[in-house]
Simulated scan of single mutants.
Amino acid sequence: MRSRRQFLTLLGASASAVGLAGCGAALAGTPSGGAQTKKLRYQGWAGQVTLPELAEDLGYLGEVKLEWVGNTISGPQDIQSAATGQTDFGGAFNGAVVKLAAAHAPIKAVISYYGVDQLVYNGFWVRQDSPIHAAGDLLHAKVGMNTLGAHDEAMLDIYLDRHGLSASQIAQVEPLALPPVNTEQALRQRRIDVGVLGGILQDKAVAAGGVRQLFSDYQLLGAFSAGTYVMTDRFLKQNPDTAATFVTAVAKAIEWTRTTPREAVIARMTAIVRGRGRGEDPAPLAYWKSFGVAETGGRITDKEFQLWIDWLTARGAVAKGAVSAGSLYTNAYNHYTASAPAPTATATPTTTKG
């Protein structure tokens, strides 16, 4: 398992490489002149329905079509693919966007696509009989999380800092990278002292009993958007109308999930997974609750990036003043407004393979 420093060094190196590659990469999906592209290449997630996929199925993309080029396994990898022109958009947690932008990658965040709310959050769980009841009890504790140097580690550091632990004390808490599917087992087998769980894995652990929540990111920061889709500056300049169609369609899909009964959203996404013929199991979709996007239509605000700028700067992962929150994103392509009527689907659920 990598240490924090090793992970951040590796992430920084890959971000620098993307920054250099992105400056000269030719975007295969972008025309050199004339008509704007109507095709958007992207990576999906196995067994999941992304907001762009949902937007397309609902008919919100119009003439613009998505072209699936494969699945990704991480947000940082997804936005690196977008920055180097292998795809036309990618999504990641906002800390990864900050690091990539600080490495001079030519990208801009255009819409939030996931976040934290009272329905969707990551909890930091301990065993019921654990002696850990407060931040001060975490000294020398092992904390299992899916990725180092990312969302969960930031939440842990913020929690410890807010409860008065010094930098030297925080350094004594040991984050460990664990596959999410193995985290509950590792916690129950006492291989770790704290496990970070979310979604269906959290629901299953709570149902099984024997664990209690120390804190959650929602308790720590309230509702907030945590990740954004990015496009390159070049793509936005050459395809402004296509970009606006994409961003506004995703915004409509966000609001459709807010105004549609949960059962209907799950049924729609299940039909999409079954219809695209990728050999996926749609069963986990039954546990879907929310995308957690905080702002109406996924509009982005400074505070969603400032959180990560402050954290990464304090850790020395990003140079002070290397980026400013306002330079990382634009809402110019988001034409969804709060006064707009609730969007309605313009197509029936997908049933054919694609």
Rank of each mutant, 00 (worst) to 15 (best):
F7H: 13
S16F: 06
V18I: 09
L20M: 13
A26G: 06
G29N: 07
P31T: 10
G33D: 13
A35R: 14
Q43E: 12
W45T: 12
G47H: 03
Q48N: 14
E53N: 10
A55C: 08
D57A: 12
L61G: 07
K65D: 01
V69S: 08
I73P: 00
P76C: 04
D78S: 12
S81A: 14
A82H: 01
Q86T: 10
T87L: 09
D88Y: 03
D88F: 07
F89M: 11
F89E: 03
F93A: 12
G95A: 09
A103P: 01
I107A: 00
S112Y: 00
Y121K: 09
G123M: 08
S130M: 04
S130Y: 03
H133V: 03
H140W: 13
K142V: 12
K142I: 11
K142Q: 12
M145Q: 15
L148C: 04
L148F: 08
A150V: 02
A150S: 15
D161A: 14
R162E: 13
L176R: 15
A177P: 10
A177K: 11
L178S: 09
T183R: 01
A186R: 12
R188S: 00
R191F: 07
V194E: 00
V194A: 03
D203C: 01
K204C: 00
K204G: 05
A205C: 05
V206E: 15
A208G: 09
Q213Y: 00
Q213I: 02
G222W: 11
D233F: 03
Q238W: 01
A244M: 06
V250T: 09
A253D: 05
T259K: 11
T259S: 13
I266T: 06
I272C: 00
V273S: 00
R278Q: 08
W288G: 03
R299L: 11
D310P: 01
T313Y: 02
G316A: 02
G316N: 07
G321T: 13
T346H: 15
T346N: 13
